[in-house]
Design a protein around this nucleic acid. Structure first.
Length: 497
RNA sequence: CGGGUAGUAGUUCAGCCCGGUUAGAAUGCCUGCUUUGGGAGCAGGAGGUCGUGAGUUCGAAUCUCGCCUACCCGACCA
């Protein structure tokens, strides 16, 4: 059960607040293995909602789910030069296939005779195993496009881990598509970014900026990485999703060619795109407050909790006679409702606990309400509550859920706008970066300059925005704040997760 | 992976410096009664090989070393 202790306030220690919230809201906890988390039922329910909604949207694009193996032959990774360079440092490697009793002691040890001929790596991403497979699936332009996605776990041996934000093992989906033309592949990568952007905005109520990654931040092996970037409450940026145009890099590395309608061989064009359990971190750090989690209604496992306040069993029966029909009507509208008549906890305890868990709307009814034909309705996002007439309560709740959804998005967007600013000199930039938020500045487009800025300020280019930002023009030319060389437009700099 | 800090009941922590009764507290948990409009009260009860493995010692939660895990700062990264 939840602890009585309050969360560390965000203003005191943001990082501590986050860590405590994840555990106390019952989302996830540490496991015995470094960097690997246990996602608890309440947290997993949220992830399942994310999965279900995204999966539906993928399928609308014609994407089909499949499954590729966890283990990848070590040699596959090195087929694509940049890819191996990007991932080699953080791969877990399987070297043996058997254990044996320790001949001089207790327990078991690795059997030295069971060494694998070729070592296997645990997938940090699946491009290589998938492209080695696609080679067998593709021979003609009639086989294209191939649009596959898999929901799975991957492992990257991280040095410094945090629940949901950066774990050694994490859950994600990875889509991998094969196309006959460059234009089609590039277009598909952008379409999938739109899917992410719409989902994160409409369902998670997190405003995002669509854009393109600078070369330094590009996915290892991609020609272009499109991304959505969100701003957390502490002003740091978080990459919420990426979609890559892979060109023909993997097709060439794995020799995947098709015969076009002129009977000529061509290499296949590829994309890959993914979002991970990191979205859970984005969700938490966008909306939640010092009292706990705040969930957007579209994603909340429980959207409405109903708490009867009673003194005697007879009174509970009387209250439930009123409350159960309300719950049924809400359920009939597809609203996820929980009636909590458990006598084990007092109403006050329940109020605090459901706030910690982020339930968007709470209804409470007691003796006074019975007399007056009223009910108390409280919303999690603003922490406000009022007592209203029972008449039309179902409609009121339904509308309130939508209002909360909108309000959360607006609040987050207002915050982002308030913390986005233009900077023109590098001196000013150095000062402004420390304050957090997004900084729009001119950059000469070279990796060297980007690296210099990163080394000196820790800020990186989050993206070259491809959408209009409220109150700012980013597409006007200027001069690089560092080198004075020409710049095509402003890019977004920030400290990031 | 480097530097720092920490690990004792489900949880938060005291005890450790200065080794020596049966290792404590709060909270949570279980039982009963009583309560229930913002984390209720009383009574009783269960719960620990002190992260782990070695070592020092007559004796280790306490001293030494290795390892594991977490947190903070770096490097790296979704």
């Amino acid at each position: 059960m939840a602890s009585y202790q309050k969360l560390t306030p965000r203003s005191e220690d943001y990082s501590k607040w986050y860590n405590e919230l994840v555990v106390k809201a019952d989302l996830a906890e540490q496991s015995a293995v470094r960097g690997c988390m246990v996602i608890k039922p309440y947290g997993y329910a949220i992830w399942e909602s994310i999965q279900a909604e995204l999966d539906r949207r993928f399928k609308e694009k014609g994407v089909k789910n499949a499954y590729f193996p966890l283990l990848i032959p070590k040699s596959f990774l090195s087929r694509e030069a940049e890819h191996v360079e990007g991932f080699a440092k953080e791969c877990a490697v399987v070297t043996h296939h058997r254990l044996m009793n320790d001949p001089n002691g207790k327990g078991v040890v690795v059997d030295p005779d069971a060494k694998l001929e070729e070592e296997l790596i645990i997938r940090p991403t699946s491009e290589t195993i998938i492209w080695s497979t696609y080679k067998n699936w593709i021979s003609s332009y009639r086989d294209l496009p191939i649009l596959c996605n898999q929901w799975c776990n991957v492992m990257r041996w991280e040095m410094r881990t945090r629940l949901f934000l950066r774990t050694a093992e994490f859950l994600w989906q990875e889509g991998h598509t094969a196309h006959a033309t460059k234009e089609e592949a590039e277009d598909f990568a952008k379409q999938m970014l739109d899917v992410y952007s719409d989902f994160v905005t409409d369902v998670m109520a997190i405003p995002v900026i669509k854009g393109v990654k600078s070369p330094n931040e590009r996915f290892a092996g991609a020609l272009n990485t499109y991304c959505i970037e969100a701003m957390m409450q502490d002003g740091k940026a978080l990459q919420a999703g990426t979609s890559h145009f892979l060109g023909q890099n993997f097709a060439k590395s794995f020799d995947v060619q098709f015969l076009n309608n002129e009977n000529k061989y061509e290499y296949v064009w590829a994309t890959s795109w993914g979002v991970s359990t990191r979205l859970m971190g984005a969700l938490i750090m966008t909306h939640s407050d010092d009292n706990g989690l705040v969930l957007p209604p579209h994603l909340a496992p429980i959207q409405v909790v109903i708490v009867p306040i009673y003194k005697k069993e007879e009174q509970l029966a009387e209250l439930l006679a009123k409350l159960n029909p309300i719950a049924d009507q809400l359920k009939a509208l597809g609203i996820r409702v929980k009636v909590d008549a458990d006598s084990k906890y007092t109403p006050g305890y329940k109020f605090a606990d459901y706030e910690l868990k982020g339930v968007p709307v709470r209804l409470a009814m007691g003796g006074r309400d019975l007399e007056n034909n009223t009910i108390e309705i409280a919303r999690r996002d603003t922490q406000s509550k009022e007592t209203i007439s029972l008449d039309g309560i179902v409609e009121v709740v339904k509308n309130l859920l939508e209002e909360i959804q909108k309000n959360l998005l607006k609040k987050a967007l207002d915050f982002r706008i308030a913390n986005t600013r233009e900077v023109n000199s590098y001196e000013e930039f150095k000062e402004e970066v420390k304050k957090g938020g997004f900084i729009l500045a001119h950059w000469d487009g070279t990796p060297e300059t980007e690296q210099k800025i990163k080394d000196e300020t820790k800020a990186t280019i989050r993206c070259i925005p491809s959408i209009e930002l409220p109150g700012h023009r980013t597409d006007e030319p200027g001069v690089c704040m560092v080198t004075g060389k020409p710049s095509a437009g402003r890019v977004i700099f920030a400290l990031s997760y």
